[in-house]
Write a protein that binds this DNA or RNA. Structure first.
Lengths: 417, 417
DNA sequence: AATGTTTGTGCGAGCCTCAAACTAACAAGA
DNA sequence: TCTTGTTAGTTTGAGGCTCGCACAAACATT
């Protein structure tokens, strides 16, 4: 792996150091001509992601700019082997010079994606085309792991993955199954793994591997994975919703990943849907998590006498329903309704209008998604311009790692205006 | 009122006509040099709003740009009398040439603010400094009003207000007490005033008065009023929450007013906080409106035997509590808690961290706001970087009209990047 | 009166996009 | 086969904008 300049996709601005010494910014500061260059380069690349292989002329038409502009932006990217020209496309019957579609080079620098869970770490390389390779995993010691164990496990895993990279990765993106401070790039807390509390993983990775590193929590990573590599491709506004043992969500609003202060927001699991309802693990009452998690589903399954209730999930529930179990059908409907309640609230609050479902629901397939969609539509007062649509995310393992890589991509493509 | 070029604050771009003929945009299209000019002009003006009167050198320092850049931006604005130079400020003891603070000229073109309620219309002029003048009102006929009556009432009212304008206003902003389609600039529906349903007010105003006209619903107008003229001045992310006979909210996220598809979003009143709870006016059960409106408060007041329960509101509730009524104190606490539930959900979902309270709560003053704030803080799981703060908005009449004017201002200052 | 400091203004350089002209590569038809 | 029409991509010069530098203006201090 030869050594390259750290950030060449969006070249050589000195990045705002964490301890930014500049005085409080005026809004965000003003634009300069060179920023226009960076921003437009990012937008062209983003358009390529959204459209798939596209010629310069087509890009120029869609953007409403001059062809020469696109050529000027694209040429350096071709030189850097970020992009390549595909084979000429037959012109229409009107004739004309064949267009050469541009697409991401397989030889472009990859991104390292990392998934940090309570019990293990997974790493891989992701190309700009969205293919995964060099997948590695490392489990943490089960008995009272020390932070040193965790650090060395992460280091080993990452080292193995990076060894497969032919070019230096653009950065490392980490999806964390817990709370994250995106500013400090640190893990705040991970349920069931107190060893990870207050763990400055971002700094560690940057120091150890000399690469930019970004952390975010799991649902937000799923969202950006969907945005660049999945069903959210090309969407300007949508939400990702994760269900399972816990609930979470993330928002992509007006072409930007939304993060609240230091990465808050999207903590949907602990919104109230049943004031003074059942006790939640957070100590409050009536959180959405009390009625829409797998834990709730298991309790209900047991109550109505479904076989092996501890192993119930959307997949089995759909199978039982299709096999004719009326009890399962009723439970599925109630579960779908309960999930839909939280989504309906999100729809009323920010109206993303498009939802990508992740987690347990994926196992239930289209059937489950349709059940939820139906309830959401019934629970949201109708409104003009408000068709609500749903999609199912990638399978769990791929989604999270693509998402982790997507965090880096978001940072590279979204020039901060 | 002499005739001027329609949009001179942000001068002479041909605006995107409503029936924009350009093909589907690439994300949003690329930046050009001239857009940099417009965007930077907008940002400088925004900074002036946020900072108050400020010299060129100071602006340049805060923005981290060259002084000449600011001079270049500001000079045309001085020529157009958008800005004026204030009197020189004494230099510090270090000496130096006295700075000349820039501020909005009282002779700058004003904005026409309009508030459309079920029973009446109110109009006024708002200067860029935020002062209100030429206030006019017109009531609609009480018995079965026809749309023609409403149109002529609005025209008369607007004409009287505009007659007082020394320069042609920059535009007309309308706050509507009901549902709005911001794209079509039309009223969709107003509770209790079916005559207003599907009323294309924006087009009518533009045709009749030759001015740009913008509509938005009431809570969103309150938010932008706060942003430019009120407690939200200079904030990058915050929320406005309206309580009273109905509930509503609006979001300012990352320096931009947030609108969902065709102006949805912020319809907090019909988020679920009590699944299968009391029947709501919308036909669903357990909406936030069933536990946090004045209607709920009146029912509770009657139930516990408070004097004149039909006239209860935050103001009286606080007064009774301070006078020592334990029943009122308990009711106040419950009311504050119920309001806090919806805010806590909003905090968990988008984490704006700063809330400006409008509507009934304003009458209860700091006491009421503190009660709500306390409950919100208790209802939100604690989290790093998450101090939640509250402010009380302007009194109802001023807030809505300033907000309506703020809609126009947002459009002028936020150059769409 | 001299010195130091800060504000605001010309001037040329650099970066970026745009318009127009030009070359390259194809289809269709005489 | 040759001409015409069409589309893709490149070259070149013009115009906008910001930046750095130098300079005049206006103040405080000594």
């Amino acid at each position: 792996m030869e050594r390259e300049h750290p950030a060449q996709l969006w070249p050589t601005e000195e990045e705002d150091a964490p301890g930014d010494s500049k005085p409080a910014r005026l809004g965000r500061s003003l634009l300069s001509s060179s920023m226009v260059g960076s921003a437009n380069r990012g937008r062209v690349l983003q358009a390529l992601f959204d459209l798939g292989p596209t010629s310069r002329a087509e890009l120029a038409r869609l953007a409403g700019v001059n062809r020469t502009t696109i050529s000027g932006i694209v040429q350096p990217l071709l030189d850097q082997q970020v992009l390549v020209e595909g084979r000429p496309i037959r012109p229409s019957e009107a004739g004309g010079k064949p267009a050469r579609p541009l697409w991401f080079s397989p030889d472009a620098r990859p991104i390292c994606g990392m998934l940090l869970m309570p019990d293990a770490v997974h790493t891989c390389l992701v190309t700009l085309e969205g293919s995964i390779s060099a997948l590695e995993s490392e489990r943490f010691p089960e008995e009272r792991p020390q932070i040193a164990d965790v650090r060395s496990a992460i280091e080993r895993c990452t080292t193995r993955t990076l060894a497969s990279a032919r070019r230096e990765p653009l950065g490392i993106g980490v999806a964390v199954g817990g709370m994250v401070d995106t500013d400090r790039r640190a893990v705040i807390a991970v349920n069931l793994a107190p060893v990870l509390n207050d763990f400055e993983l971002g700094d560690m990775l940057t120091k150890r591997f000399g690469l930019p590193a970004l952390l975010d929590h799991h649902p937000r990573a799923l969202l950006v994975g969907d945005r660049w590599f999945g069903k959210g491709r090309g969407q300007q506004t949508f939400a990702a919703v994760y269900t399972g043992e816990v609930l979470g969500g993330a928002l992509y609003l007006g072409g930007h990943l939304y993060r609240g202060q230091s990465g808050a927001g999207g903590e949907l699991g602990h919104t109230f849907v049943q004031v003074d309802g059942d006790l939640c693990s957070c100590g409050r009452r009536g959180c959405w998590e009390t009625i829409a998690t797998l834990g709730w589903l298991r309790r209900q399954a047991r109550a109505i006498g479904i076989d092996d209730p501890d192993a119930i999930d959307s997949g089995r529930l759909v199978a039982l329903t299709k096999a004719g179990s009326s009890g399962a059908a009723a439970l599925l409907d109630l579960y779908a309704r309960n999930v839909a309640v939280g989504i309906a609230n999100l729809q009323q609050t920010v109206a993303p209008n498009f939802y990508i479902l992740h987690g347990d629901v994926v196992g239930g397939g289209e059937f489950m998604a349709e059940a939820i969609a139906g309830h959401v539509r019934a629970l949201v007062p109708s409104r003009s311009g408000g068709e609500i649509s749903f999609a199912i995310g990638e399978t769990e393992d791929r989604a999270a790692l693509l998402g982790a890589a997507g965090l880096v991509l978001s940072e590279l493509l979204q020039f901060p205006l």
